[in-house]
């Protein structure tokens, strides 16, 4: 219980820090809205391609907007953590008698909170522009939960980058690492329509399976044969990355 109590203190502090930077929040929401604007209307004609699973391209795009925002949140996480490391604030926390994993937990929990807020904002925008969710309200909850878990996993990648490199230069540019994870996917077009090396690369990207699952819930509903691979990949990704981040964190603080 003590670890939870301590984590909650760190979490509240991180939450206040986040809320103290309103432009970070506005920018996160705006960037998602802009995605619809830039890709939604201009690419609408893609839905006429044979084999395209829906006639509503905005609905097709919603999964991409959510997953992309969540994947890139790993880079934000790296910067948030690096700022605390560079300012010496992490040292200050480590000087206190709290369990070191409370600090880790409080940090990952704020990543999850940010993801929930961002995903909720995107789902709201999607609803406003007329996207209908085939999976219904349980689908909305499932999408939020799944992408929040993905955000935690990506936050772990960010944490490893910040802790390992301790470099502003590397951390600021860490979005480059997240870019292939976000773009080597069937974000704009179904996988069946992707060919050549791109098609192969998409097949190797774990985020693709999660994206497909999320998109299926949104545009087709509870089609388990398409959702389950994404679920397993999501759980495996979380297990691997949380373990890696924990290992790295333990190594760094011992």
């Amino acid at each position: 219980m003590q670890i939870l109590r301590e984590s909650s203190y760190i979490y509240v502090r991180n939450l206040k820090t986040w809320l103290a930077q309103p432009w970070m929040i506005v920018a996160a929401v705006l960037s998602s809205a802009v995605m619809y604007l830039f890709f939604g209307e201009p690419l609408r004609a893609i839905t006429n391609l044979p084999g395209f699973p829906t006639s509503d391209y905005q609905a097709f795009l919603t999964a991409m907007v959510i997953v992309m925002a969540v994947v890139f949140s790993g880079s934000d996480m790296a910067m948030v953590l690096l700022t605390d490391i560079m300012s010496g604030y992490v040292d200050k926390l480590l000087l206190s008698p709290v369990n070191r994993f409370s600090i880790l937990l409080g940090t990952l929990a704020i990543g999850a909170t940010r993801a929930v807020a961002q995903v909720a904002a995107i789902l709201l925008v999607a609803t406003v522009i007329g996207v209908r969710f085939a999976g219904g309200f349980p689908g909305v909850l499932a999408v939020t939960l799944a992408t929040t878990l993905l955000a935690v996993a990506m936050g772990c990648v960010g944490l490893i980058i910040a802790v390992r490199t301790r470099s502003v230069q590397v951390t600021v540019n860490s979005w480059l690492l997240f870019m292939p994870l976000a773009f080597l996917t069937s974000a704009f077009m179904p996988r069946e329509l992707l060919t050549g090396w791109f098609g192969i690369a998409v097949g190797l990207n774990p985020v693709e399976y999660i994206l497909v699952a999320v998109r299926t819930i949104i545009i087709e509903g509870w089609m388990w044969e398409q959702i389950l691979p994404g679920l397993w990949v999501l759980l495996a990704t979380c297990a691997v990355l949380i373990s890696a981040a924990t290992f790295e964190y333990r190594r760094a603080t011992n």
């Binding site: 502090r13 103290a20 010496g88 604030y89």
Partner: peptide, 15 residues
């Protein structure tokens, strides 16, 4: 209190 003052700039002093 270390030489490199490790403070949280966005936090209020009392908090």
């Amino acid at each position: 209190a270390m030489q490199e003052v490790g403070l949280d700039d966005l936090s209020k002093g009392r908090d």
